[in-house]
Design a protein around this nucleic acid. Structure first.
Lengths: 347, 347
DNA sequence: CTGAAAGCGCTTACAG
DNA sequence: CTGAAAGCGCTTACAG
């Protein structure tokens, strides 16, 4: 029966038993070597390793999963639109999975539909049970999905949720420290009139960046300080929406001399919008973003922004999902470029 | 023994047997319902489906894989740097996997190291045997990796390889048709002096785009027609390299009046480079790209480019990997925007 | 330090 | 149309 292999089946692979036969030990001992069990003599280990090489043995993940009741799979969700932010996360997560003998499974969801990720999770988990799920913004604030994960007993880790979530391990970037540093940089350069972009609903982690920026302003308590908000209007992409925000902010009576956009895509749009109006960046208006992700690479002039280590954060999330552990916060870094400081001052 | 569940194990799940008990049939019949076997009476099917709902039964992928000798997993490789192109592919592939009851597995590799993807494949496949592997550029022209896949008997599908690869199913975009359309567009607008960007080594699919563009020029056989190539110099990102290419092309004696960049990231850099030199796009120089991917979203002015349906191509690749089938070619679409036609002409 | 047994939860033929 | 048996290739206790 076992020899009947229809064409679509993968070739029957070498088993531990067969490796054991070649090495002159039992298959179980081969399993021990593979599991790095210390209770194996060096000589046996040596023999087994040679036999593994000779036979081209590859452990069968399905069998292993079934016996061990773990899948060696970690799932992460990808929104159905291009997101540079998420692309960076995936790379970091995939690398970390590989390093831990795990594999990263990508699940797609519809970002425009609030319940979609939950539905996708339910449907998908009918087929595979991953060992853990990693939730990135905006899903890291999806209470319903998190509740479902909890009640399923599914390990889960949040990346950069807005605020702490009780009893759920999370990986944060120290956004507050970065924003304070950015604010101080702008303040020190003499900026007093600030423009901000209203964050879209359902993205509390973006809103939070604005909130912290406003707190910085408040702490200065200087009366002439003022913040002006561009309303949120979606124009089909972060860039175009940022461009519209710039048009709003820069065509009023008293326009801001510095604009903080809650992420790089918006910031680039703000710069384009300003330049279209003939307003020079940074001479007439300084612009800063957040993330230092791929979008910052496309910005001109080069964008002053706050770099968060997304790849390391994703890697940490994978490790927390696999091994458990405490929430942690990664430092961020203010990257000063020519969108806030003219080139000639850069030396 | 089976009741000893260490904390790290996933909870024991409901089995087909148990569902069968609830439904008053054997577990095998439950399996038939799940497999959509037509030889099940409607009444039985109904009973079983109710029992599945009541018990919250979820089939165990590991057990299924082990018994059926297929993993229900498709692997795709992601380079270790941000790539908008690849991010678009992944989304399409993930969606198609979901629709087919499969899952997409992300494998990371080092784009700077030629043998890295092969090494990564070998190492990873020691642990999981996927049912298929999808190779996207530049891996879709990696002979060594493809040979290895073949000798492993691993199903594989190529996305947009440069040239046909013998006996390997591939998904193409009709780049030639798109490039001819783009060339005709530029020609019709009176452009005669063309600038091109030399493609990086190891990316024959980009080189191919230049080659086709040059063929179009040749076919015109017009003596004053000329093409000028910017040398390839990597400046850390496609955008910055394109910017340098523009600086090269636009500071010679007889500068081009239209520049074709082999992809959108380069094209955006070319536009930035031109604008820095005070050369207006499109009035003084028209610029066009290729892909209409996420990079085109960041471009200003909006970029004329050739849209290829990356998500559908990736979805098709997944289907070929799962079900087999013939190579196929997707139509592309010239998207004319303001980088080649001034806004006032757009109506 | 190593082996034999039992079991993970499915699918695949084969009977009936 | 439905059931009982065998098997997929591992891991987990338990013996020795």
């Amino acid at each position: 029966m076992r020899q009947v292999i229809p064409p679509y089946r993968t070739a029957r692979s070498v088993t531990q038993e067969e490796v054991g036969r070649v090495a002159g030990v039992s298959g179980k001992t081969v399993g021990r070597v593979l599991a790095r069990d210390p209770h194996v003599s060096a000589a046996t280990r040596e023999k087994v390793e040679r036999a593994i090489r000779e036979t081209g043995f590859r452990p069968n993940l399905a069998a292993r999963s079934l016996a061990a009741a773990r899948s060696y799979l970690i799932a992460i969700f990808v929104p159905d639109h291009s997101s540079l932010y998420h692309a960076d996360l995936f790379r970091g997560a995939a690398a970390a999975c590989g390093a831990n003998g795990y594999h990263l499974l990508l699940e797609e969801y519809d970002a425009a539909d609030n319940g979609s990720a939950l539905a996708r999770y339910r449907e998908s988990q009918r087929r595979v049970r991953c060992d853990g799920v990693i939730l990135s913004p905006p899903l890291s604030n999806d209470r319903e999905l998190i509740e479902c994960l909890k009640s399923d007993g599914m390990a889960h880790v949040l990346i950069a949720p807005a605020g702490k979530v009780e009893n759920v391990p999370a990986v944060f970037a120290d956004e507050r420290a970065g924003l304070i540093e950015l604010f101080d940089h702008l303040w020190a350069r003499g900026h007093r009139r600030f423009g901000l972009c209203t964050a879209p609903l359902g993205h509390p982690y973006l809103q939070q960046r604005n909130d912290i920026f406003l707190q910085c302003l408040e702490e200065k308590g200087v009366s002439e300080s003022d913040a002006m908000f561009a309303p949120f209007v979606w124009h089909g992409s972060g860039m175009l929406s940022g461009r519209a925000a710039a048009a709003f902010l820069l065509t009023r009576g008293s326009r801001p001399d510095a604009i903080f956009a809650f992420n790089d895509e918006y910031a680039q749009g703000v710069m384009i919008g300003a330049q279209e109006l003939g307003i020079r960046v940074p001479q007439a208006v300084a612009v800063a973003g957040f993330d230092d992700g791929a979008a910052a690479q496309f910005a001109w002039p080069p964008l002053t922004t706050i770099r968060q280590p997304l790849d390391r954060m994703a890697a940490k999330a994978v490790e927390l999902a696999i091994h458990g552990g405490e929430s942690c916060t990664y430092p961020v870094q203010l990257i000063v470029r020519q969108s806030t400081v003219p080139e000639d001052l850069h030396g």
